[in-house]
């Protein structure tokens, strides 16, 4: 199956022991706090927090292996490219201290490739890796830990209107159907000699060649949506305030988690107001270079 739910009830899972609303509030607080810092020393607690949540989530390595390797690989390449080019860093530092300059022994049309290894680039790349990794891990754990049947009531509980909250439920319901339709179309086109892996050409050409997949899937979704709307209308959707069958109740631990999340955010705001947590490199390293 192309789309399969990653969620299952896991015993002794730290993340699953909380009300999903409490966890989402905590997650949002940590998200904004992490994004407020560029100082590796301030980011390390979030990095360790992400590891703690991952290791206590009850998610088995074989379940998360692919997603984990993809995230690590993506972030590493992203941070490494930033290190190589220095792009993005100039927004948080003004001066660079050169550790070593590497120059190629050849030229290309008169241009000699060179790489400036500076203290700032190393620490900017490191900060970027730690930031994105911490958030990536916390984000990727959500589909493994949040029961799809509770998405609607969770967002309703967070204050969204009935219709928007139910739209979340409906999305979760139809993702597997959409995945199945996509697989059917993929099989149908493969049986006509279509080979996705052999698509070549420029970006526009490649997008155009995805037409045999995207057009039928889209048309099918549009045709199907008429039935979905009928089915909702016929069972009185949207006529008034609805009862949500599942009930979520905050326990003491949920309130504590929300409190901790909010406290982290407040501390972050205060710390940021005092100008702390911005980009940092060890002064000793700078002295060494000077």
């Amino acid at each position: 199956m192309l789309v399969a739910w990653r969620y299952r009830k896991r015993e002794n899972s730290f993340i699953q022991s909380f009300d999903p609303r409490a966890w989402l509030i905590f997650y949002i607080c940590v998200l904004f706090s992490t994004l407020s810092f560029w100082d590796v020393r301030f980011l390390l607690p979030f990095f360790f927090l992400a590891w703690f949540v991952l290791l206590t989530s009850g998610v088995k390595w074989h379940e998360i292996r692919r997603a984990f390797i993809f995230i690590i690989g993506f972030i590493f390449i992203f941070a490494f490219l930033t290190f190589l080019t220095g792009r993005g860093g100039t927004e948080v530092y003004e001066q660079e201290h050169l550790l070593k300059k590497l120059e190629a022994s050849f030229t290309i049309l008169g241009w000699r490739p060179a790489l400036d290894i500076t203290v700032e680039r190393i620490f900017f790349g490191l900060a970027q890796f730690v930031r994105v990794f911490s958030l990536g891990i916390l984000t990727v754990l959500i589909p493994y830990s949040l029961d799809p049947a509770l998405y609607g009531i969770t967002f309703r509980g967070l204050g969204l209107p009935d219709k928007i909250a139910y739209a979340m439920d409906l999305t979760m319901r139809f993702i597997p159907t959409f995945g199945r339709d996509f697989q059917l179309t993929m099989d149908a086109q493969k049986a006509r000699g279509y080979e996705l892996e052999k698509i070549q050409g420029g970006l526009f050409e490649q997008v155009r060649k995805l037409g045999p997949l995207m057009v039928p899937v889209t048309i099918h979704a549009i045709i199907g949506s008429e039935d979905i709307i009928d089915a909702m209308d016929l069972r009185a959707f949207g006529v008034g305030p609805r009862t949500w069958l599942q009930q979520l109740t905050y326990q003491k631990r949920d309130r504590i988690l929300i409190g901790v999340g909010v406290a982290i955010l407040i501390v972050t705001i205060v710390v940021s107001m005092f100008g702390l947590g911005q980009f940092w490199v060890p002064p000793a390293l700078l002295a060494l270079v000077s």
């Binding site: 339709d181 059917l184 039928p216």
Partner: peptide, 14 residues
């Protein structure tokens, strides 16, 4: 072997 799926809307696109 040519395979015709149940619903033509799963394959028609051109």
């Amino acid at each position: 072997l040519g395979y015709v799926f149940q619903s033509p809307s799963h394959m028609l696109f051109a």
